[in-house]
Amino acid sequence: MFKAKLESAKEFKKVVDTMATLLDEICLQVNEEGVRAAAMDPSHVALLSLNIPRIAFEDYQADEHEIGIELEAFKKIMNRAKAKDKLILELDEERNRLNVIFENQGKRKFSLSLLDLSGATTKVPELEYHNVITIKGDALKEALKDADLISDHVIMRASPYEFKIEAKGDLNDFTAEFSSEDDAIISIEGEEEVKSAFNLEYLLDMVKGVSKGDIVKLYLGNDMPLKMEYSLAGCELMFLLAPRIEE
């Protein structure tokens, strides 16, 4: 069995929106500890990993199950979440469906038909990073939106004291600079200078669910995938994004 209740359907909508911008489908692996999932986007440029520990739920009961979900359909349903709706996710094993229930003044129940994605689990690689930047989510998001005016990719540079996002266009440039003294920065860790370039469209998709008050952790290396982590309403999201390199 699997039945889980979340305090805010509207907050979980942000998680589903973010997943749906990068992925077509995902296989939720549920057990008594919580919900986990990981998948790469169809072009294998980005990976998303989701971890919702059971403590994030108001009620939680689960045996081991794999629940394959078509994300566009799930996103459309979650778009119907209203401000005070609670969200119940419930596996109907007989009909092979996930019931998505909005609970407020009454219950509104959608039944989402499941995909067979068993065996399609993605292993998340352990990459080593020396530079870690912890930054306020809105500052990062605004800098990426600024860069989007100039180019379709950015160079991220980190040193022990500074983090920069640069975009170069044919005519115009953009640079966002954050020092460890700046309000936007919680911390900058690292002993060396590193830089990697990334596609901006993916980056903007990855920060889609981020809003004011969210804290984002960035792990950077030299021509290495970017690792990004943040939490939304107790749901831990982790992304990997492959870099662009000069040939």
Binding site: M40, S43, H44, V45, A46, L47, K123, P125, L127, H153, A197, N199, M224, P225, L240, A242, P243, R244, I245, E246, E247
Partner: peptide, 11 residues
């Protein structure tokens, strides 16, 4: 010339 790598390059 810039090239987009995939994550398969790192696994």
């Amino acid at each position: 010339q810039e090239k987009q790598l995939t994550l398969d390059n790192f696994f």
